[in-house]
Design a protein around this nucleic acid. Sequence first.
DNA 1: ACAAAAGTGTTGATGTTACACCCATGT
DNA 2: ACATGGGTGTAACATCAACACTTTTGT
Lengths: 234, 234
Amino acid sequence: MDFYKNEPSLLLAVDCIIFGFNGESLEILLIKRGFEPERNKWSLMGGFVQPDENPQQAASRILKKLTGLEDVYMEDCGIFGDPDREKYGRVVSIAHFALIDTHQYQHIISEEFEARWFPLKEQPELIFDHPQMIEKAKQKLRMKAALYPILFELLPEKFTIPQIVALYEGVYDTELDTRNFSRKLLSSELIIKLKEKDKENSKKGAFYFRLNKDIYKEKIMSFLSYLPSWSLNG
Amino acid sequence: MDFYKNEPSLLLAVDCIIFGFNGESLEILLIKRGFEPERNKWSLMGGFVQPDENPQQAASRILKKLTGLEDVYMEDCGIFGDPDREKYGRVVSIAHFALIDTHQYQHIISEEFEARWFPLKEQPELIFDHPQMIEKAKQKLRMKAALYPILFELLPEKFTIPQIVALYEGVYDTELDTRNFSRKLLSSELIIKLKEKDKENSKKGAFYFRLNKDIYKEKIMSFLSYLPSWSLNG
DNA sequence: ACAAAAGTGTTGATGTTACACCCATGT
DNA sequence: ACATGGGTGTAACATCAACACTTTTGT
């Protein structure tokens, strides 16, 4: 029955690229490793897949260990398994990205890990191939966000349109016309206007909105059948 | 130095979803397993990641073993690692899809594997979680194809517009208006008209085209910055 | 001559972009 | 009263979808 006994085994890890949005800018959560190897260097949060869990479950467990959060949007975004990527043994790692609203995390500050939010463009030096993992995560995030409104996973319950625009500008590293963008969004019925206004950032104040979850689910279900829009021109 | 010695090891496999287009319909290449376990059942081509290769290289090696082809477009499309997915040991498998022009494969018919092309909709019963792998591959293929012209990887050097349309219709399981689709494609300069015509399928004959590789590369490089088009309306 | 598939022209509807301008409010 | 960001109106332009119609050629 030992059909596979001559096959080489290895360690399977998961690493988490944790994206967070605080209402202004897009950030990523990194830890200072408190263990060897590479102790005291900045790193993605990671860990090994255990016998009783699949890699997705491992990623959720590891995210929870750091942030305390459950039911967070996560998705794998690349396999990193060059034979020599770690000096201390053969480790293949599956990169996962998570999308969280930073407000939900702020108060859980874990003592065990020295964790810190870094703006996307101010990453510190990272161990192993973690920079490439982040690059892949950004790519997949853009790709998904181009097809359906995945970025709403990063927003709090109540949000303003200028916040959404800032989020999209952060992800795509570009400037958008808030006026046109908001109109497009409103016509989709994806968001519902609330009576309340956020007056922290302007004198006039910007209305809060919340996500229309029914429409959101519809979009998620249907995006797989979108036909090419590939900007064939231009 | 044995920092990881208490971590559980496992076997890492790759399975290949090999999509092929023969000019008329989209198919997938399956093998009849000649080895245990599950001998004589239909299956995806797969194998284990070896110590000297990363998972991508393993997938290429396995594809070459079956088809003889190298430099084929491949991409991972999902991790399948439930603890009990195989009875004979802990195996996590990384699904990869490959895109090939079936004409290039026809003559290499491998003796070692009893391989056969199946139209996408006439899949036989498959072992393990291979049906789910195929489903994931189809999803990722659609997603990619919606953003850039990846499907050209499935076409031969010379192809006709009705063929491209058939390909897109197969991938999206829908009907397209050949007339509008071809106009769109032509205006993109992605394809170059040849003098020759294919007269096998019609009396008038359809002009052959070839891919404009420069424009193709441009599209591949730039698709990551496409902004949302999410069919916000509708 | 006719059938059948390839391909062109045209049109109204729909979407996008750019930007002038109005709105609400704290100082 | 005025500066500041939030938001609406609008006109020019690009793109899309639908389909009538023309082209080519084997039988």
